[in-house]
Computed example of a mutant assay.
Amino acid sequence: MLPDRDRLKGGLIVSVQAPEGSPMRQCEVIAAMAEASLNNGAIGVRLESPEHIGAVRRRCPEALIVGLWKRTFPDSPVYITPGWEEIQAVWAAGADVIALDCTERQRPDGADLAELVQRARRDLGAVLMADVDSLVNGVRAAELGCQWVGTTLFGYTEATAEQQPPAWDLLPGLSQQLPDGALLICEGGIASAEQARQAIGLGADAVVVGTAITGVDLQVAAYRRALEAF
């Protein structure tokens, strides 16, 4: 059962993920990082793949888990929980909230976003987090039935490729235009505690931080590049 809105407001959700090929991607490592995050005050964790969701659920049975499954298909740029198979798998693995791409882009096999949202709500009773890139897509996702809206894809779609996260310009509009009861999540590009506070000040209810906390591979590579520049 999800915490009530008051407990979620102002909270930190840690994205515990690792790239393909990384030794950090092992289930036991992901579960340990998730537990450490929760032990130190995170209100929840965001996890990729049914395997990682299941591993964290077993280790941290009371955890709030936002789950997704990244899969790529040749006929679509959508890869965050793109279809019904992925939605079912994430839910069955133990996620409390299912995150999925809710941009206007074509989905694999021409799947319809509205139908996917309706089916997940009706057949699973799932809480859905819409990963969006724009004000229009965020409002539309909430109208379709997504209870959470995140700025996850701002700067990562063709339409926003020239934008740089965090989504400072997007948060105030979403905060004003999302329907009452929708939870606004700032995700993407948050690199410090100060930026997390800034996101809340701009209207976010909670923030998701990943690379800056758990992204060992990317963080080390960034330090190496900076030092090699001298």
Rank of each mutant, 00 (worst) to 15 (best):
A31C: 07
P172Q: 09
V220D: 07
A114L: 07
A182F: 00
Q195G: 07
Q147L: 06
D180L: 07
Y156I: 04
L124V: 07
E104F: 09
R46E: 01
G44K: 11
A141R: 03
M24A: 15
R71I: 15
A55E: 02
A32C: 02
A182R: 02
V45P: 00
K70G: 05
V29L: 12
E104Y: 05
P74N: 08
D101N: 12
Q164R: 12
S134I: 09
L116E: 04
V90Y: 00
V56C: 01
D6L: 13
D180V: 08
V209E: 04
Q17D: 09
E51Y: 12
F230H: 11
C27W: 05
A99T: 01
I13Q: 01
P61G: 10
Y79D: 10
E51G: 15
A114F: 04
V117T: 04
T103R: 01
R57K: 13
E228W: 03
Y223W: 15
A111S: 13
V78G: 08
E228Q: 13
G201M: 00
S22M: 02
D180K: 08
L153V: 08
E228T: 08
N137M: 06
E35P: 02
I65L: 05
E48A: 12
W168G: 05
C27V: 14
A111H: 08
V29S: 14
V127Q: 11
N39H: 00
A142Q: 01
V149F: 03
I53H: 00
D205M: 03
D131N: 09
V97H: 05
A196E: 01
G150M: 08
E51A: 15
G10E: 13
D205L: 04
L38T: 05
A114D: 07
V208Q: 04
I80D: 08
W91S: 06
D6V: 11
L174D: 00
L12C: 04
A196D: 00
D109N: 15
E51D: 15
G145H: 01
S76M: 00
L47S: 02
A226Q: 12
D101F: 03
V117H: 08
G67M: 01
T157Y: 05
E104D: 13
G215V: 06
E62D: 15
E35Q: 12
I213H: 02
A55P: 06
Q177R: 15
Q106S: 14
E158G: 15
Q177F: 14
Q147P: 08
A199L: 10
R58H: 02
A221G: 08
G201A: 05
R57S: 09
L8A: 00
A193Q: 15
Q106R: 14
L113Q: 03
Q88D: 07
V132W: 03
D6Y: 09
E35A: 11
F230K: 09
G150S: 13
E86Y: 08
A34C: 06
N40D: 02
Q163V: 13
A206V: 06
C146W: 06
W148E: 06
